[in-house]
């Protein structure tokens, strides 16, 4: 499903973080959202996922208006996300972290055991897919930053979103892990998931993205395939000041 925003605006006091953003992220593609620090990328993510309410504008996913809806409603509509500063449940094991994404499905179903075999196997298969199954029993707080990043992604995947928003997936991870994350995104995309990635690592962005949107001062200044973006003078200007 297409994720679109129209005239999205968010100000914090006198600072306008997003200034009437009209953006379209295409389904089935790896979309990237790039821009200089402070250009409003994370605020844009937060508005789209309901973490903060926009002052104006709309967020539409497929044919569903998600503007200002609670984050759990957005998640249940099929939009998952990770955070810029990776967030896991620190005193829960890796497996519990992933199982926490299972939807209870009503009060009575919510009283069913969280330890059902089928769900454990599904959670474990995600941990395996991300290469951290050996840490299933470790508390998340004992894991390294990179492992926590993978765990956070495993939790998001457990909820089976059709669209995944990744906020700086390469931030603070080593080159080997960076490769794994890039490969994983391409594999998951090939299976039908749409990605929107905020990222500063241009090598990663250019290698895995199909479509790039460039933000500057809270609004998109360019959009297109990587080759086009790389040659765009407005983008060079925003990034390099030339």
């Amino acid at each position: 499903m297409t994720l679109t925003t129209h005239g999205l605006r968010k100000a914090f006091g006198g600072v306008v973080a997003i200034d009437g953003a009209d953006v379209e992220f295409r389904p089935g593609q790896v979309n990237a959202l790039i821009g200089p620090n402070g250009s409003g990328k994370t605020t844009f993510f937060n508005c789209v996922t309901g973490m903060i309410k926009p002052d104006a504008g709309t967020v539409v996913y497929g044919d569903r208006d998600l503007t200002g809806r609670a984050p759990h409603v957005v998640a249940r509509a099929g939009v998952g996300r990770t955070f810029q500063l990776c967030r896991v449940f620190p005193r829960m094991t890796a497996l519990e972290n992933v199982l926490a994404a299972v939807r209870p499905g009503g009060l009575l179903l919510g009283l069913r055991s969280a330890h059902r075999r089928s769900e454990q196997e599904r959670a474990l298969s995600w941990l395996t897919r991300l290469g951290i199954e050996h840490l299933a029993g470790a508390e998340a707080r004992t894991m390294s930053w990179g492992q926590q990043k993978l765990l956070e992604l495993a939790g998001v995947l457990m909820a089976e979103p059709a669209t995944i928003l990744l906020d700086e997936p390469a931030g603070g991870v080593n080159p080997a892990l960076l490769d794994r994350i890039g490969t994983l995104v391409r594999e998951l995309n090939a299976e039908g998931r749409t990605f929107v990635i905020v990222e500063h690592n241009m090598d990663l962005v250019m290698s895995i993205s199909d479509h790039i949107v460039v933000f500057d001062r809270g609004r998109p200044i360019a959009a297109g395939p990587p080759a086009e973006i790389r040659a765009d003078e407005r983008v060079l200007g925003a990034y390099l000041g030339v």
């Binding site: 984050p71 759990h72 955070f83 967030r87 449940f89 299972v102």
Partner: peptide, 29 residues
């Protein structure tokens, strides 16, 4: 009973990080 349940796991997720639990689809309120 709650401690073993899905509902209980959601509650514990709230204890750990409420915003994160919400972003995973838990109706925290």
């Amino acid at each position: 009973l709650l401690d073993r349940s899905r509902f209980g796991l959601g509650l514990k997720a709230i204890r750990e990080d409420e915003d994160k639990a919400e972003s995973l689809g838990t109706p925290t309120f």
